[in-house]
Design a protein around this nucleic acid. Structure first.
Lengths: 260, 260
DNA sequence: CCAGCTTTGTGCACGCGTTCACAAAGGCAT
DNA sequence: ATGCCTTTGTGAACGCGTGCACAAAGCTGG
């Protein structure tokens, strides 16, 4: 559910791998890599599915989109499947990545081992703060944003990670795209608008927490009969120019959310 | 439909909200909050949809699950909608959260403003490293993992964030759940197994990048004439374990990425 | 009070994703 | 070889999510 820009009939010849399947391939790959390190030669769909946390039928169907790589009565060859999935995901080649915005999060990302371990190479760390330039984070020197275009061109970067504040995310995004980046991983809490052909995936910590809160509330409400909220919001319809509802906070945030 | 007056679609109101809709509510809420700060009184579904990056029909349908909060010919009252969505998401109450694993990522999360701004309060930072205990991160003192159960009980924590290495994630998870946590946001690259009734959402940086790499590879392959997946690395059956390099195509290279 | 314009709310159809259930395929023991 | 047992690969049904298209609702001007 990244960007809804998908006017492709999903008919890229036999390469019509469903998006949902693609999203699970890294999961399978991780489980298979673990098995590989333990020198396990083969796995059944049932075992692998358990390790990946999915349904075995789903896993088999997912693999069927890649081809018939299993052996009936035996299972899947671990090493072979690792290779096939890696190739399908494009991990058999090197992907230089730039991280823009070296704050707490950007630094954490730079240090994250999961990047380098699968074909992703941090080509550069970029920040707009001049005082950061020259400092070393995760063994890589932070460069100033002025050189962004040059860095991307020199390294052939096609994937960019945005870890800036929300305010500058779109601007950074535009520059990345203009410089040739066609895939963006966005950590800033903003909706990015990009031209067609550019993929954007967003990771939003706040949204994830809010979804959890919803379910948490629902769980709590299930046990209580019908707990009426202690907040009489009133003023349902518009029409009334009375937009001066109760007494929200000066910051304009959710009224009732204000901590006591 | 019938009498559309009462907004309670057969089931328990909150029960009837599709998961996909719940996932978008925080997005709408953010856009609405921005409008609220600019003192915009009302918005049309078209405007709000654009701001949230979704289809306007989808937005209207989403809101219809909450109830009829709009005014035909006018749009939606911003303040009122902010309140309704906040309430539906459970943000009208305070959610104490613990973050376990105060490494680079954990520290970044602790400093992330998006937490505190919407009813989430970092009740405690917990780490197993004794040398970290007592140090202050984001204005909060890091506590040792020994006190995990006590901290959760004392603060009534029901949401936990796991930012530990993959190796200890399941163990931490088990302790959290045993102590009463029923919602977990997992940043560790592992599949967590939890008892029924516990919600887990995972944020996996590596997986997101791999999905981007897939699309990136596909984009690159589209321009080249139909690149037949010539690459019989052999070793289909369980017998041969040889991973043979083959001839991928134009780019030729293909450095092995998989660690042994 | 009525006509006309705007925007919501939603019935409906379509397509994707999930799951079931089973025939086909392959190994292994005899 | 042959028959049995295991596991894959997939056809088909089902359910969810998306987007279209339009009637109903509400505001505004005459």
């Amino acid at each position: 559910m990244a960007t809804g820009r998908n006017h492709r009939p999903a008919t890229s010849r036999s390469r019509g791998i469903p998006e949902a399947t693609v999203a699970r391939l890294p999961l399978y790959l991780r489980a298979l890599t673990a098995l590989s390190e333990r020198s396990v030669p083969t796995v059944s769909s049932e075992e692998l599915a358990a390790a990946a946390g999915v349904n075995s039928a789903k896993l088999r169907k997912d693999f069927s989109y890649l081809g018939s790589y299993g052996t009936r009565g035996v299972g899947y060859d671990v090493e072979y499947l690792v290779y096939q999935i890696s190739r399908e995901l494009g991990l058999t080649q090197d992907w230089p990545v730039v991280i823009v915005g070296i704050g707490n999060l950007g630094a954490a990302l730079a240090n994250y081992g999961g990047f380098a371990s699968r074909g992703f190479r941090v080509a550069a760390l970029i920040d707009a703060d001049p005082t950061l330039a020259g400092r070393t984070v995760a063994g890589i020197e932070v460069e100033h944003a002025d050189g962004l275009e040059q860095i991307i061109a020199d390294n052939g970067v096609s994937i960019g990670v945005i870890a800036t504040p929300a305010g500058s995310a779109q601007q950074v995004c535009d520059r990345l795209v203009a410089a040739g980046v066609t895939s963006i991983l966005n950590f800033a809490p903003t909706v990015l608008s990009v031209p067609e052909g550019v993929d954007v995936r967003k990771v939003d910590l706040s949204i994830e927490l809010q979804i959890l809160a919803f379910h948490e509330q629902r769980k709590a409400g299930e046990e209580a009969p019908e707990e009426e909220e202690t907040a009489p919001p009133a003023a349902p319809p518009a029409a009334a120019v009375t937009k001066k509802r109760s007494e929200p906070g000066p910051d304009g945030d959710v009224p009732a959310v204000m901590p006591a």
